[in-house]
Design a binder for these strands. Structure first.
Lengths: 229, 229
DNA sequence: CTTTAGCTTCTTGTATACAAAGCTGCATAC
DNA sequence: GTATGCAGCTTTGTATACAAGAAGCTAAAG
């Protein structure tokens, strides 16, 4: 996902880095209920650290939109608000279109070949995998295309949004139907990219993301239900 | 700019909020040299606080891309890298196009009228104002259009980018030539919006941002020179 | 029975202290 | 003359302590 630095030397992985990864996963997967206040003392104890490094992590996650914060009232799990999700998908759609557009211009043949190989390997076992694995594969596919745009900021923006909608991707991947269409649509996008047919690639990507947007109401409903059962 | 909460009640403005605003301004305007390490003790003292709240602010600014951070080596001013700026402008261009597209669909007549009034008032005195004021006016114009998209996440993304390219906007506004063309181009965008001519609005906005992108090499050169004199 | 005032407790905001890692510079060895 | 290693200083990472604000609870009054 977002992780970057390859543990420069040794592999110290400072404690704040470790709890950042863990808390981020928890926030992405709504392991806290929407709006649930996070008790700093409790959380710190559960990670075996003091409040100081924990708060630094919490601040980072707030800045990334994965947690909420109100002064003097503390940190809490972000809400799962339909309007916000729609907004995120709308922005995502725009970023994805930029990605394919730039990728057709800038990706090398070798890069496209690697993407192709990656997706062939993924698709082969896609229907047998766990929803979590499918969601991650899906994210990787899209983020690899963004990477081919050679625009790091575009990639980072997309990654930030993907982290925030991860939970819903997960929910949708639990239905075989969504998995199948995802698979098919990725193939179309890939084919257009390999042909370097920019217009077609944009059309396919646009259709792909828009379709997900239409299914969003159902997925959000399911996602909220899941949290309260 | 980004600021949000209207000081819920009273006006306590916690110290971390205060130093956040200040440090953000300093980072936006490159009041530290690119790559310059920030001494926590020194900085904390200069703000009259301890390292704890300062570090929370620094972490936030790192997450927003306004500062750099390397574990065990501390915080430093972000670099002023041409490639990064180009990437940001490319993403910005995409977001701005989304903004006008959505704004023509969703803005009410009243909202468009307000935008019109705002820009008329600004344009009148544009050539007499300070570069700082012009840069802020420019940002506001674009952010108001993004707000008309009714998409909060789109607005936030654009604001985040604007904060990161603020310094270069400032530099460019010091030249009367850039100010004039900005003014003219905004008028064109505005006219298209008022006509609700989506295609034209997109064309104008696209031309506007692309033109800035072309001038970017010069502006970056000037910006870097300014920092080392 | 409901409401509110005041007290208690819990939680967050911030300062400070200390440990550990990094950097600098000098001295010694080759 | 260059390189290497060690000592001391600087700076960051994290724990802890304490102050101040919010929340909850009890008790008394209407």
């Amino acid at each position: 996902m977002t992780s970057s630095q390859p543990a420069n030397r040794k592999s110290p992985i400072s404690s704040v880095d470790r709890i950042y990864q863990q808390l981020k996963q928890m926030a992405m997967n709504y392991q806290f209920r929407p709006g649930e206040p996070l008790n700093e003392v409790e959380l710190a104890a559960s990670f075996g650290v003091s409040r100081t490094p924990l708060r630094e992590v919490l601040n980072r996650l707030v800045a990334e939109g994965l947690l909420d914060f109100v002064p003097r009232r503390g940190f809490s799990c972000r809400s799962l608000d339909a309007k916000m999700i729609f907004d995120l998908y709308e922005v995502r759609c725009g970023l994805e279109i930029m990605s394919v557009k730039l990728a057709t211009d800038r990706a090398s043949d070798l890069e496209l070949k690697h993407l192709h190989q990656f997706w062939q390997a993924s698709a082969q076992t896609f229907m047998q995998r766990s929803p979590i694995e499918c969601a991650c594969c899906d994210e990787q596919f899209h983020e690899q295309i963004a990477a081919l745009s050679q625009n790091i900021e575009l990639l980072r923006s997309l990654q930030a949004i993907n982290a925030r909608v991860h939970y819903l991707r997960l929910i949708s991947m639990e239905q075989a139907h969504y998995r199948r269409t995802t698979c098919d649509e990725h193939q179309l996008i890939l084919a257009a990219l390999l042909d370097r047919d920019q217009e077609l690639a944009v059309t396919c990507m646009s259709a792909h993301v828009s379709l997900r947007q239409e299914q969003l109401v159902e997925v959000i409903k399911e996602g909220i239900a899941r949290l309260y059962m």
